[in-house]
């Protein structure tokens, strides 16, 4: 047995669970962003694993490239929004951010 597919998928699933738990429980907005990055990375692991075990190896890897692109865009825009909120409210606790406009 060399690197079977279910083992890699299991690693991805556990990492996904960790990311979901963090995104649900953390109150710091930056920490929530980090946990979302964990979730996106675990999805990438799954995509690359599937691409290794199918005949057309380019498919899964290209999907992973697009996931990476969207994750970079999400991190940039998310952190810009968090910085703007931090400047106005002097805190980034997501339980306290409850106004659409102030």
């Amino acid at each position: 047995m060399t690197l079977s597919l279910p083992v890699v998928l299991g690693v991805g699933a556990i990492m996904f669970g960790l990311g979901v738990y963090g995104a649900l429980t953390q109150t710091n907005a930056i920490r929530v962003l980090m946990c979302i990055e964990l979730v996106l990375n675990s999805v990438n692991i799954n995509l690359v694993a599937f691409s290794r075990f199918t005949a057309d190896q380019a498919l899964g890897q290209i999907f992973a490239v697009f996931v990476m692109t969207v994750a970079a865009a999400e991190a940039a825009v998310g952190l810009a929004i968090i910085l703007m909120i931090a400047r106005r409210k002097t805190q980034i606790d997501i339980d306290q951010i409850n106004l659409l406009k102030w």
Partner: peptide, 18 residues
């Protein structure tokens, strides 16, 4: 996570990588 692990462990997967 448990649902995903169960689905993965029950599925029929190709045994050897290309």
């Amino acid at each position: 996570a448990a649902a995903m692990v169960i689905v993965v462990s029950r599925g029929q997967w190709p045994a050897s990588p290309h």
